[in-house]
Design a protein around this nucleic acid. Structure first.
Lengths: 137, 137
DNA sequence: CTTGACCTTCCCATGATGGGAACCTCTACA
DNA sequence: TGTAGAGGTTCCCATCATGGGAAGGTCAAG
């Protein structure tokens, strides 16, 4: 049995976030001591670590919530978990492509910019739209 | 001379955002008609398009603001523009790596998950931390 | 019995954007 | 000339996940 600060250290989730997770119903309300302090056990810490790992893999709170529910459901079908994960992989790939496209365009513009003390700059020209041919396939 | 709705259409920036950009000082305060309607000219539309392009390349409002200032400064050194762009490319690359790492880990887990109606699931096992060897180099 | 660390709740801020209410203005048409 | 509807104005709220901080209660050690 530990208080919120210890649970935070043990799980890697800040005390602030533990309270927030409780407030939005992601985790159940913690028991309290006579003096109103929240009390956590090892199971709670495991749950918090689960959440932390899911967040580190980029799952949204909503997805994390769904994963948590499946984790606690002994009769789950792994297909349900797999679907959430697969969709998230696709979302990640979409986002990566978008960022990659931005980076590619910018790298090209940066490459074309002399980067000296003169004002002429293909980066600004591109942003100004006076240079649409540069770096846009 | 056009009103905010026309400027929005011409620039691709929503009226809502145009007002917001004005409120945070990214663009100067628009002139008003006698009836308090904002009025925009072609220069304003060019500026809005510039902002739109910068945002599409993933620049933050702060970076966009700096780029706008450089654009308007005829005595700028292209090196200053290049630096902002280079730093942004690096930030994009960092973010891409992070997402890529998440996607790689998840793809592996998804690959290992049978995805049937049985409860056993390496994805959940990994999140629960009972499976640290899987998918984590 | 005090001090300092930690807990509690509550409010505010982020960044960029959209939604919507309440109200005003303009244009077109009968 | 009256009215309808489109579109303008300001202001507040919500998002998503997180942190900061104030005001006040609690606990443990000295």
């Amino acid at each position: 049995m530990m208080n919120i600060g210890e649970a935070a250290k043990a799980s890697g989730v800040s005390a602030k976030m533990i309270r927030y997770y409780e407030s939005i119903g992601l985790i159940s309300e913690a028991d309290r001591t006579h003096s109103n302090y929240r009390v956590y056990g090892t199971n709670d810490v495991h749950t918090l670590r689960f959440i932390k790992r899911a967040r580190n893999l980029g799952f949204s709170m909503e997805e994390t919530s769904a994963l948590l529910a499946l984790w606690h459901d002994r009769t789950r079908a792994s297909a349900d978990v797999k679907q959430i994960a697969t969709e998230h992989v696709q979302a990640l790939e979409t986002r990566i492509s978008e960022l990659q496209e931005m980076a590619d365009t910018l790298r090209h513009l940066v490459h074309c910019c002399s980067g000296d003390n003169r004002p002429d700059c293909p980066i600004l020209s591109n942003l100004a739209g006076q240079d649409r041919a540069v770096g846009q396939a």
